[in-house]
Amino acid sequence: MHDIQREIIDALHVKENINPDREVREIIDFLKNYKYHHDFIESFVLGISGGQDSTLLGKLAQMAVEELREEGHTIHFYGVRLPYGTQLDMNDVDDAIAYINPDFDVTINIKNAVDASVKALNNASFHISDFVIGNEKARERMKAQYAIAADRKGVVLGSDHAAEALTGFYTKFGDGAADVMPLTGLNKRQGQQILKYLNCPEHLYLKVPTADLESDRPLLSDEDALQVSYKDIDDFLEGKTVPVAAFNRIIHLYKVSQHKRDKPYHRYLKPKYMEE
């Protein structure tokens, strides 16, 4: 194994193998302990996209709040649908919500807010490309979740995991912004293992992953966008040998996305690579 591969695996806290039962217990206990230490919390809030990651975290969050209520705590889970207009894979969102069975099923359509923002920027002579509009969608979704959390004394959960952290495949201050990231350390196939263990409908965890942010390229797969497969990403994170081209692509993505994993830079905090 290359030194940089080991360094990345350690930094992202990835295990070579997982026990789904143990992971479920650890994540639920993690969420419960967060509530124990923050008395103000009365809700967990999460956007539900119909994809693997939010389906997994939504299920675990609902399980956590049900255990907390059995212990006498007042807390609820809000599963939030956040379509931009009409979502092409809305049937998957419906199925994910049915599987999770959240305390509250909320829909906030972000189209008017995003379009107004883009119009204002264009009127100010900024050219906002379809790709950048995708980032606007992600940030508007997170903004809506924080508004819900503020109103319901809650915190926002984030579904980012090791495979996304490795590649930087998330929007900075969009889906990359949250109060709590319970799926840290898991890769894609490990998330699938846990959903299978939790009796999730197979089509939800075998669904082709897509961020679906670009209107010009609807439902563009993550793998097409990243130019590397999740199999190779997961193998890399589990310390296995991957093809040279995939290895080089993964290392490139990791390096160019380092700024997303850094804390905001200020005068008294310098990342190690800037200390020279």
Results as ranks from 00 to 15, higher is better:
1 M>K: 15
1 M>P: 15
3 D>V: 14
5 Q>F: 05
5 Q>W: 01
7 E>T: 12
11 A>M: 14
16 E>Y: 14
19 N>P: 06
21 D>T: 10
22 R>Y: 14
24 V>H: 02
25 R>Q: 09
25 R>S: 06
27 I>P: 01
27 I>K: 00
28 I>Q: 05
28 I>D: 01
30 F>N: 04
33 N>L: 09
35 K>I: 06
35 K>A: 07
36 Y>V: 05
37 H>V: 00
38 H>A: 04
43 S>P: 02
47 G>N: 06
47 G>L: 05
50 G>N: 02
50 G>L: 00
51 G>Q: 03
54 S>L: 09
55 T>R: 04
59 K>V: 11
60 L>H: 02
61 A>G: 12
64 A>N: 02
64 A>K: 01
65 V>R: 03
67 E>N: 14
68 L>R: 00
68 L>C: 05
68 L>A: 04
69 R>N: 04
71 E>A: 06
71 E>S: 06
73 H>K: 09
80 V>R: 00
81 R>A: 00
83 P>W: 02
84 Y>W: 08
85 G>E: 12
89 D>S: 09
90 M>W: 04
92 D>K: 11
100 I>P: 02
100 I>K: 00
103 D>A: 05
103 D>L: 03
105 D>V: 11
107 T>S: 14
109 N>I: 12
109 N>F: 10
110 I>K: 05
111 K>D: 08
114 V>F: 08
118 V>P: 09
120 A>G: 13
120 A>C: 12
120 A>S: 15
122 N>C: 01
125 S>F: 15
131 F>A: 09
131 F>I: 11
131 F>P: 03
133 I>N: 10
136 E>N: 01
137 K>H: 10
139 R>I: 05
141 R>T: 12
142 M>F: 10
145 Q>E: 07
150 A>G: 15
151 D>A: 07
151 D>V: 00
151 D>R: 00
153 K>N: 15
154 G>C: 10
156 V>A: 09
156 V>R: 05
157 L>S: 05
158 G>M: 07
158 G>D: 07
159 S>Q: 14
162 A>W: 00
165 A>K: 08
168 G>F: 01
171 T>I: 04
172 K>L: 08
173 F>E: 04
174 G>R: 04
174 G>S: 10
175 D>I: 03
177 A>I: 14
180 V>E: 00
180 V>M: 07
183 L>G: 01
183 L>H: 02
184 T>H: 02
184 T>N: 03
185 G>Q: 04
187 N>D: 12
187 N>V: 09
188 K>S: 01
190 Q>N: 02
194 I>H: 09
202 E>F: 03
206 L>A: 14
208 V>D: 13
209 P>L: 02
210 T>W: 08
217 R>K: 09
218 P>C: 04
218 P>M: 04
223 E>V: 11
223 E>N: 10
224 D>S: 13
224 D>V: 12
224 D>E: 15
224 D>N: 15
225 A>L: 15
230 Y>M: 09
232 D>H: 07
234 D>M: 07
234 D>K: 07
235 D>N: 13
241 T>D: 13
241 T>K: 13
244 V>Y: 06
244 V>K: 10
247 F>P: 05
248 N>S: 08
248 N>R: 07
249 R>K: 13
255 K>L: 04
255 K>E: 03
258 Q>H: 13
258 Q>K: 15
262 D>S: 13
263 K>E: 10
263 K>I: 10
265 Y>D: 13
272 K>W: 15
272 K>A: 15
273 Y>F: 11
275 E>V: 13
276 E>M: 13
